[in-house]
Amino acid sequence: MPTWSNLSLQDANSPLMEQLIFFHDHTMMILFMITIMVSYIMMTTMFNSYINRYLLENQTIELIWTIMPAVTLLFIAIPSLKILYLMDEINNPMLTIKAIGHQWYWSYEYSDMNNIEMESYMKPTNSLEEGDFRLLEVDNRIILPMKSTIRILVTSSDVIHSWTIPSMGIKIDGTPGRLNQGNMNINRPGLMYGQCSEICGANHSFMPIVIESVSMNQFMNWLNSN
């Protein structure tokens, strides 16, 4: 749920984002420990009166402070690589949608059965209704079924754009001439918001993305009625 003055990550709406939040918390804990340890050492070194004019090499401490950072980095690298390969899991998706970035709107294509194409423009501020989010609402939302693997292919028809949904941990650049694949699995029904994340001209801040996630039955009904 994006709210103003939000400092933390948004609540996760996909299993991958849950893993990313765990990794973020784990790494943050390590960073806090390192920062506190270094600050403590600096404080005690600055505010003491010990003097040793002949302080020179010491093999033991050198060994310790080469091995310990290596081990710390290993503790950060292994979960990170685990998530990296988890993101590339082979899954046969149930649905493929294409997101094509234009200046300055997104167009979506659902081409598996009947070919549905739609364009998604931001709702201008003067046409917002009560309860709508400024600069985040669109006229046509992407409707997706929940709890199924969906493949999304992002590209662009002019300049580079980036398709982002923070609550699912997705950020996929759309480059002209190239199809970038991502996959998602939505946990809950509801609305998810994102904004274009690659500078693309005058209205780069005004091309948001909204996903409306519904149950499979509602999705099939919507597909068949279009």
């Binding site: 093999q59 060994l63 290596a70």
Partner: peptide, 11 residues
């Protein structure tokens, strides 16, 4: 003489 350099080389 400076055995502490070995882990550095290894890493």
């Amino acid at each position: 003489k400076h055995t502490a350099l070995i882990p550095l080389f290894v890493c």
